[in-house]
Design a protein around this nucleic acid. Structure first.
Lengths: 133, 133
DNA sequence: TTACTACTTAAAGTGCACTTTAAGTCAACA
DNA sequence: TGTTGACTTAAAGTGCACTTTAAGTAGTAA
């Protein structure tokens, strides 16, 4: 069975050692087995779990909701429906945020375009927009 | 000339009164003119500026970079090129983040699909993934 | 044996972006 | 005239998610 050191996990997943310890302490990830000298030894299953938690964090799910999700998981298969709802509603929230960001990107693109086409006269006019400070 | 109270701006833009004051104090937005009783009175130009600042915050540009952008603006047209670079590089960063989130959304969708199709046997197996705690 | 490196812990500290608090002013209405 | 409500300020407080610190241990190389 392949095992990984903390350093390997750090590389593989892209979380710092202190974050990995913090997640473990907060029970976002399981208690990791130790090798003969007391250092953490991660399994492929651990890696998979940590990766999914990272996906949740990458999409800004708050720690307290992830804890909620993990608790449900530990209660077993009777919580499948609730877990599905939790992930699905998070997914919908993220989708809306992405759509909002795409709108914002249009505004940024418009601004860049403006800077590309602006001439000296336009620039002087634009100064009037924020004349103080 | 149309003028707006803080309450109207709050509604129009979707920022709290304290955030509007905070942005003003930090010079992200210009010093707002006051009415006869000392209360803020926002112009359409103010609204436009605040909206753009909100777009920057909605896309998670840090306050210190926005301050940098505002400073450049105040230095006048000689900073147009720098401002364009600043906004453009931010735009590219946001685009990458959006792409990353779309990838994460695929993972979330996969998980939802899994929960939709999982049967009792599969659920028991999945329990092995996180057996402690 | 000594030094070095990589890990370990609990606890305190950090950074960011607001948000709340406490105390005060002003205009309108009963 | 008093009280209500919306504003004002500076300063302190909050929430979140880590990150850093300080002190210690275990294994390896010289």
């Amino acid at each position: 069975m392949t095992r990984y050191t903390m350093n390997e996990v750090k590389q593989k997943i892209g979380l710092s050692a202190s974050t990995l310890r913090y997640y473990e302490k907060e029970h976002l990830i399981p208690e990791i087995n130790r090798d003969s000298s007391g250092n953490r030894s991660y399994t492929d299953t651990d890696i998979e779990w940590i990766s999914f938690i990272k996906t949740l964090r990458d999409t800004d799910m708050p720690i307290h909701l992830i804890k909620n999700y993990v608790s449900l998981f530990q209660e077993g298969s009777k919580t499948i429906a609730t877990r599905k709802e939790l992930i699905e509603s998070h997914k919908e929230k993220v989708q809306k945020e992405v759509e909002q960001k795409l709108e914002s990107l249009k505004v940024l693109q418009k601004k860049v375009k403006y800077y590309e086409t602006v001439d000296r006269r336009k620039q002087r006019l634009s100064q009037r927009a924020f004349k103080k400070g």
